[in-house]
Amino acid sequence: MSLKLEIFDPALCCSTGVCGPSVDPELIRIAKDIHTLQKNNIDAVRYNLSQNAEPYVTTEVVSQLLDDEGTDALPATLVNGELKKKGSYPTAAELSEWTGLPIETFVTKPKSFKIDLEIK
């Protein structure tokens, strides 16, 4: 069975949600996680309420969620059409559990670097 993961974002200023004077690191993380899922052949997509409202209306579970709780319920995450999380983005552990990918797939390890200082 193929897996489809959908994230329904609140209204963001642009498709990435990382424009403006301050960048939310959570938006950068989830964008990276979506890219990682796609690289691992998982159908993963994010929708932005301000730029693509149609899926919010045509996806019954999301439409009902918005009717019941309003936009405070966003972001909402669906896996194969089932609501798995609302009000915040999925964690690495949740993505690992839902997709079967190792958690290390989603955990960013800091890159090590060497500084070579020569004092004169």
Rank of each mutant, 00 (worst) to 15 (best):
E82N: 12
L117Q: 07
L49N: 03
K4H: 05
D72N: 11
K85W: 03
N80V: 06
L66I: 15
K114H: 08
E54A: 14
T99P: 00
Q38K: 14
W98T: 00
L12E: 13
I115A: 00
T105S: 12
G20L: 07
N80L: 06
C19W: 12
P90H: 09
D24K: 11
S2H: 10
L3M: 08
A44I: 03
Y47T: 06
A76N: 01
W98V: 00
K111G: 12
D33K: 05
T71H: 01
F8H: 03
L5Q: 07
G20E: 10
G70C: 06
E54Y: 05
V23R: 14
R29D: 12
I28G: 15
V61F: 04
K85D: 04
Q38E: 13
L83W: 02
I42Y: 06
I103D: 05
L65Q: 01
E94V: 02
D116V: 15
I34G: 08
G70M: 02
P90D: 07
L12G: 11
L37M: 11
A73D: 04
I7L: 12
A11I: 09
T77I: 04
N41T: 01
N40E: 08
T91E: 13
T105P: 06
L83F: 02
A92K: 10
L27I: 10
M1E: 14
K86T: 13
L65G: 04
C14P: 09
V23C: 11
G81Q: 09
E104P: 00
D72V: 11
G81R: 07
P90Q: 07
K114C: 04
I115G: 00
N80E: 07
T58N: 14
D67N: 13
G17E: 06
L5T: 05
S15Y: 06
K39V: 06
Y89K: 04
T59A: 07
P110A: 15
V18E: 14
D9E: 15
H35G: 00
I42M: 08
S22E: 13
K86H: 12
D67M: 07
S2G: 09
T59F: 01
S88H: 11
C13W: 07
S63R: 14
S22G: 05
L27M: 15
Y89R: 05
E60S: 11
I34E: 12
D33H: 15
D68F: 02
G81C: 11
K32S: 14
N80H: 02
W98L: 06
K120P: 13
Q51F: 08
P75R: 02
L65D: 00
T71L: 01
G20H: 13
W98H: 00
C13E: 14
P75F: 01
S15C: 03
V79C: 05
R29A: 14
A44F: 08
E104G: 04
L49A: 13
M1Y: 08
C14N: 11
T59E: 10
L3Y: 02
E97W: 02
N41H: 11
T99D: 02
T108H: 03
Q38W: 06
T91D: 12
L65P: 07
R29C: 03
K109E: 14
K86A: 14
E69H: 13
E94S: 02
V57R: 09
D43F: 06
E54M: 13
D33T: 10
V79Y: 04
V18Q: 15
